[in-house]
């Protein structure tokens, strides 16, 4: 697959391209991160996320900058950077697309989705399309098994996927169409996402719903059947508060349409017997 691809994983990693984007601002932000912890070195993982947000990968210059700020050697920082799967030595595309192929998602269709995307994008695992838009990677369990098969874009969830909906998703990303996670925000770039992971919020926490259908499956059933936890010492505050402040029976019955921006994964998944309602 994609044997002659420019960023194929058998091509040597450029040690340094000599055009590092790390500036005094980056260094100042690294110091800010280190100051958040009782011991500065604890900020190393966030600092490496910051390096990726600036450089698009972990560069030698980024490693040296971390080392300088923390008083470590480059080798000590490299040892850490190479341990963690999210740190990339090769340039990552504008969008990182992850396909869960751990057992449950694989069985539910993740393997077929991954195969489809590899051939559709003409890349192998952990490789980037020629246009630099998409890096495809098979990922391990991402804690969304009740929405299997799961795909992520820049670590935002895309639920109940099919080969068709996954190819549509990557096509939309490549064409620059606005894409929203059904349980998250409008998709930003991978670098912007890395900046949030570094610890610099982007103010988009209020986008998206509280949860998807599966997250609310048990609660919805409990509401329908009037099942509650027993009353406690504080009185029936839970049930009473819920009854008062829930806006309507419809709201209690599940996520509202306004809570579900973006693509309805169900729409491309009409044959799925689980979507009976």
């Amino acid at each position: 697959m994609a044997n002659d691809h420019a960023t194929a994983t058998n091509v040597p990693v450029p040690y340094s391209t000599g055009d590092s984007a790390i500036t005094e601002t980056t260094i100042a932000e690294m110091r800010e991160l280190a100051a958040r912890y009782p011991v500065g070195r604890s900020a190393l993982l966030p600092m490496l996320h910051l390096v990726q947000s600036v450089e698009g990968r972990v560069t030698p210059e980024g490693i040296e900058a971390c080392a300088d700020v923390l008083g470590l050697t480059g080798a000590e920082v490299s040892a850490v950077a190479t341990f963690y799967t999210m740190y990339k030595r090769r340039p990552v595309g504008e969008y990182h697309v992850g396909v869960c192929t751990n057992t449950l998602c694989a069985v539910m269709g993740g393997d077929l989705i991954f195969e489809r995307l590899k051939s559709h994008l003409d890349v192998g695992n952990d490789e980037t399309t020629e246009d630099g838009k998409i890096t495809l990677e098979h990922i391990e369990c991402n804690a969304a098994c009740d929405y299997a098969p799961v795909v992520t874009v820049n670590w935002e969830f895309f639920d109940d996927m099919t080969p068709q909906s996954a190819t549509q998703l990557v096509d939309d990303l490549r064409e620059g169409t606005e894409v929203k996670s059904p349980r998250g925000a409008t998709i930003c770039s991978w670098r912007e996402a890395e900046r949030v992971l570094a610890g610099f919020p982007d103010g988009r926490a209020d986008e998206g719903p509280t949860g998807g259908k599966a997250s609310l499956a048990g609660l919805r059933l409990a509401r329908e059947r009037n099942w509650t936890a027993p009353n406690g010492a504080a009185g029936s505050s839970n049930a009473a508060a819920a009854a008062e402040s829930t806006v309507s029976p419809e709201a209690a019955a599940g996520p509202r349409p306004s809570d579900q921006p973006g693509k309805e994964s169900q729409a491309v998944n009409g044959n799925d017997s689980r979507k009976e309602d």
């Binding site: 209020d206 509280t210 997250s215 099942w227 936890a229 505050s237 819920a242 709201a251 209690a252």
Partner: peptide, 29 residues
């Protein structure tokens, strides 16, 4: 049969915000 406690406020409007959490008794404990 089901006893929603941790998940009890998950169907509230903007449950992730402080104001919503406090409406259902959040931070009383």
């Amino acid at each position: 049969m089901l006893t929603p406690v941790l998940s009890d406020n998950w169907d509230q409007i903007n449950a992730w915000q402080l104001s919503s959490y406090q409406r259902t008794g959040g931070y009383d404990a």
